[in-house]
Nucleic acid binder design. Structure first.
Lengths: 210, 210
DNA sequence: TATTTTCCGTTGCAAAAGCAACACATTATG
DNA sequence: CATAATGTGTTGCTTTTGCAACGGAAAATA
């Protein structure tokens, strides 16, 4: 549907051509960045997996977003309030590019090809993010843990073009992502197995319905 | 924080200059648009209020987004699946501009000033939407009805710069927006009053804590 | 103005989800 | 390899939420 601009090649070709970015490598469990008001950072995950995690005042942990290769993140996408701490945590070894959104928006003085291409394609990149967020909202508005699980599984199944797939999360993290209690979720997973909706071997799920 | 481009003046100045748009007026409860795959419509709400509503297979109704003056909506922001019907319903009399996103993206042949300005400012407009969606996700990930209500109230209070404000929804619709049962929400509102967190007169809420 | 429709407020009861605790498996790490 | 840390799977109990139903208020409509 969307004019899917090839971020992959684009990044490979141009990631070294701009002076105003920083490239950093992180190892598992390191904090990639903390969201800070008014900084307007824009980051691109070149490689690896990372989670945007929120800790609220009660100490609850929520996985706000899960990022894989080529994901965009940073303060640009977020209104930071004082009630939460927002961190990006590396879930595996990661390579990340850091930009200032203001630089991108106003183009960098070198007028480098990267910035040119990026600013042309930025609307599309951000739109992709919007559709991701809308899918997330669709999941979160489901009224029961069962529906959240089935909704998420069907989404993964569509993405992988297969009724069988690995979860990109540990089950503990999946619960944080769906915003439900882990033990209640485990109970529901058991019921889904018993009721013949799914098969489950470790982190591999197979959908049986329809 | 964001270079806040003045959509209001922009729309006033240019809304009549482009050939490729349609302007329509709707009265309360009319369906403004239905989301259709591959159409890539982009709409701007010039005036009034409208809700993006989803009906799922179980007949559950969810208010996915609430739009007021100058809101952007349309299929561009959404991956449409077959499991849901997505409608925009006018909550009051509305005036709406309809564009094709493809026209905006590729600029219209007349090369009109509207399209020029719009495509320059589109990233910013979409970013505003992203931050809205992230706020919504923050609300929906709260674990209890109480926290959802308090979170939503504090958000409104921040926006209005006052501890006292009118809800933009009926209470029935608020429940659909927070994705909770209406009667359970009413019960929780009563408890919030009893516990001294809020005052409530009809749709006017006053925050008492802190 | 009379009447219909929608919304508000409430409640008892049933179902779902959260909490806490534990044993065991698996994976990191010294 | 031994040990620590993290993740999985399970359960009893408590709390929260959803469901269904109803009367009355408010708003829309004839």
């Amino acid at each position: 549907m969307n004019t899917n601009f090839d971020i992959e090649n684009f990044i490979l070709d141009f990631s070294n051509s701009c002076q105003k970015k920083q490239k950093k490598v992180f190892s598992k469990n390191e904090v990639v960045t903390t969201y800070i008001k008014n900084r307007n950072q824009l980051c691109i995950l070149l490689d690896g997996n990372a989670d945007l995690v929120r800790y609220d005042l009660n100490g609850n942990r929520t996985i706000v977003e899960h990022f894989s290769k080529n994901a965009l993140f940073g303060e640009v996408f977020y209104t930071i309030t004082t009630n939460n701490e927002l961190l990006v945590e590396a879930k595996s070894n990661c390579t990340v590019l850091f930009y200032s959104y203001d630089d991108i928006f106003h183009k960098c003085r070198n007028n480098c090809k990267f910035h040119q291409t990026l600013s042309e394609n930025l609307p599309q990149l951000i739109l992709n993010k919007v559709t991701d967020l809308n899918m997330r909202i669709e999941l979160l508005t489901k009224r029961s843990t069962r529906d959240k699980l089935l909704g998420y599984f069907s989404l993964l199944s569509t993405r992988k073009l297969s009724t069988s797939f690995e979860l990109p999360f540990s089950l503990t993290d999946l619960a944080d992502y769906l915003s439900v209690d882990r033990s209640a979720m485990m109970r529901e997973l058991k019921l889904l197995k018993e009721d013949g909706f799914i098969e489950k071997n470790g982190n591999r799920i197979t959908l049986l319905y329809k």
